[in-house]
């Protein structure tokens, strides 16, 4: 799969997120930003490289990154 024809859907489950901030802080592509309560918002999904580190590094199983194949 080529990165150029790949899109991702990132979901944050607010019920399980504890606002630790790991996904926001450690995303190399700066996909996330925090809202006023510390909840991660998906600011720039198009920057996502689908490395899935945010998903694996979320301590609360609250992040899911799903690839949507454009073709």
């Amino acid at each position: 799969m080529n990165k150029t024809n790949m899109a991702v859907t990132i979901r944050i489950d607010e019920a399980f997120c504890k606002r630790c901030g790991f996904c926001i802080e450690f995303c190399n592509a700066n996909v996330y930003e925090a809202d006023k309560d510390g909840l991660p918002l998906v600011k720039d999904p198009e920057k996502c490289t689908n490395c899935r580190l945010c998903e694996l590094r979320c301590p609360d199983f609250a992040v899911s990154v799903e690839v949507v194949d454009n073709e």
């Binding site: 301590p59 609360d60 199983f61």
Partner: peptide
């Protein structure tokens, strides 16, 4: 879910792995 551990505790990360 939600896990019983504190915000920022890495236990969930290990469990996921």
């Amino acid at each position: 879910l939600p896990l019983m551990w504190c915000a920022g505790c890495g236990n969930g990360i290990i469990l996921r792995a």
